[in-house]
Design a protein around this nucleic acid. Sequence first.
RNA 1: GCCCGGGUGGUGGAAUCGGUAGACACAGAGGACUCAAAAUCCUCCAGCACGAGAGUGCUAUACGAGUUCGAGUCUCGUCCCGGGUACCA
Length: 836
Amino acid sequence: MTDQAPPPPAGDLPSGYDPAAVERKWQERWQAEGTNSPDLANGKDPFYALMMFPYPSAEGLHVGNLFAFTGNDIHGRFQRLQGHTVFQPFGFDAFGIHSENYAIKVGIHPGELIPRNIDNFRRQVQRTGLMVDWRHELSTTDPSYYKWTQWVFLQLYKQGLAYKKAAAVNWCPFDKTVLANEQVIGGACERCGTMVEQRFLEQWFFRITDYAGRLLANLESLDWSDSTRTAQRNWIGKSEGAEIEFVVLDVLEFAGSATASAGLSGEVAVSTTKVRVFTTRADTIFGATYLVLSPEHPLVHSITSDGQRDAVEAYLARAAKQDLVTRKTSKEKTGVFTGAYATNPATGQPIPIWIADYVLMEYGTGAIMAVPAHDERDHEFATIYGLPIVRVIGGEDAANSQIGDAAFTDTAHCHLVNSERFNGLSVEDGAAAIVTELAARHAAIPVVNYRLHDWCISRQRYWGPPIPITYCDACGVVPVPEDQLPVLLPPIDDFRPDDSGVSPLARHAEWYHTTCSSCGGPARRETDVSDTFLDSAWYFLRYPSSDRDDVAFDAALTKRWLPVHSYIGGNEHAVLHLLYSRFVTMVLHDAGFIDFEEPFTRFRAHGMIVREGAKMSKSKGNVVNPDDYITQWGADAFRTYLMFLGPYEEGGDFRDKGISGVKRFLDRLWRSVQDARTDGDVEPEVQRKLHQTIRKVGEDIPRLSYNTAIAAMMEYMNTMRSGERRPHVDEVRPLVQLVSPFAPHIAEELWSVLGHTTSVFDAGWPAYDPALLVESTVTMAVQVGGKTRGTITLARTGTQEDAMAAALADPAIAKFVTGAPRKVIFVPGRMLNIVV
RNA sequence: GCCCGGGUGGUGGAAUCGGUAGACACAGAGGACUCAAAAUCCUCCAGCACGAGAGUGCUAUACGAGUUCGAGUCUCGUCCCGGGUACCA
């Protein structure tokens, strides 16, 4: 192992502090006394402190997991010290392709592997001393959990929000499996390197797009990290524009002259075929010189002219074979002419209709009006294929210049040109006026489009909850009745995917063939399992009710504990997990199961930790193993160090030697309690610093500013123990309380040494006295002409005159005051600036 | 490309409202204690210049402008690093 923790402080515990013994003792006691298990039904002031549950990998807990959990634990413990009943549950997100692929690799069934991994994770988390209520532990792979995941599916189905449609998936012909987008590297399968193809398979989808508007609008009122809200906003991608109809010209009468657009007029009949396009730039319609359809567009075959048919078919075949990732990332523009024309409704002129794969079927209408003068992609395409480029937007001083090598995409302070009666209008007014006029002719309609797609939840895989649907020849699609849940995942020895493109579940004949719950006749089970994102889209609802087998979640408990008061997790889930959770919550709200529609009142994203400036990875061999550090330094020191190494929401740099500073602090705390005296009085200077520290730590923790809270406690320690000073017990006791969220075991131990018989976490939070915070004199900076030249000490209530007198009395300052001050700026208690 | 973060000593990082830049800690140097070491405690620790010294001056928060009595903090432009996203019409 290259990632050895540095040696622990040598010697034989000079301070008497033995973290291993202390931590074992208190973990056992918490367990025995149920310290971390709140009374969910009656506890006052509920506070639900949730962290994102982990995927239990075989490698064990990553230090990044612990960083996340510890930050949540500190926040939860602090809330408890403020008088809340805090519920901090823990669970495992253990279904999915990662587990399955790993199981295939090592040749052990996931049903055997996962419980092992979970045991190891639980052991590691427990060692860390999190205030977790283990009575409510859950695993998504447990039938008593996924029974209710299937129930959630049925609720969406009942609401008409689950439907089936054919959709493209990545298919590796060698591995005979469906791949997620992230498993396709440069068009090839990440495992075997075979070029990936696309296949169309029937898949189950959730209509999350129906909720796009609400998911977007609610973001405004959520107390979430701004970066997370922005990411969601961008992902939903609202864009306002218009759908415009272009009537296709009937060219049958002159097959063979497909390229001669000049010869079109007068000889063509107007057909009833119309192409609908979506555009956000209706103002540029006079510059729309051609249309482009996506290769999958339904009109492609019917409008293609005989002369172009071979070329079009060839293009479609090539597009169909290409994998999804390559198609979406490749920037080269390719396309083919259909031979058909449509009338530009603004100019009345015929324009050619092309097919190109840069137009995506799943967005908008799958067709665009191309304006090469003002859109980069259209410009590139038009340049390659020699299509006309007509400028219709003028800038402030470039109104008449030609379009050169690049599209002109500015809109601010621009106006329409070459657009007949719309000339001179601003971009915004022009778009509105054109849409209004086309709408009057029934050729356009204002439309809002979202980038967000419906959520594909089908996985042609083994390791997931079966989708609770059956197919009956007589009754069609029949959902499994709720009282027949769960549909158990059958044990299958060979769970590898095969060439068929359907889930391995289809090979289990006994399971696959069932009876129709509606007519009693023969039926077949749906063989797809659901996406792991569905498992995690509702788990927060399950935690408080995890011991209930008759309902997914108890109504009263849910009302009491949800929405989640505080949710902490990584920004890598900023979009999908959080969005899906919000969606499922909204649906359950609309179905009347819960009375809130947003699951997480407050969300904060934590940062990432790196090690010695480099990202941690197995291949670099620089992964921090929490077990090593906890063994050598103790969980308390490890937790506190993780929180000290940088701002929690930004992450930090784990430097191996840094932990010694935190350990020294805990050693010093230990000795301070042993050395504390009960005679005499507290010292006013120390007392003031104490009260300042209580305030600072109490303000920093809710802001997740853990690193500065720890620094403040260290500062206080330096004051209290300055020069081996023997502290008064009243100076030490509150510090034990302040430290307790960070280093809970040592705090409990010292709290009991100080004579308390109950948990420090039931002792409340120390109060500070505002009157004791202020000092009678203040040190103020004195500037001359804006440059700091010295300081003066002044009574707190000192006036500007006092300050001036004191400043001028100091020759080091006075020497810069060369003449009568032109201006004096005085900020009471802070600074004085003399401008000469 | 676009969208978010970020850039401060040898290092990780402080500076909450525009008001003494570098808290706290690591590393380093020196000292006390000790036969010695460890542990502990104390002192020093941005750069440059001048000074025997106490000290004094100047320059410093990626770079360049700007606003202001005063900018790490606000505005504009540029560069670099990290994360997310990818032809979204």
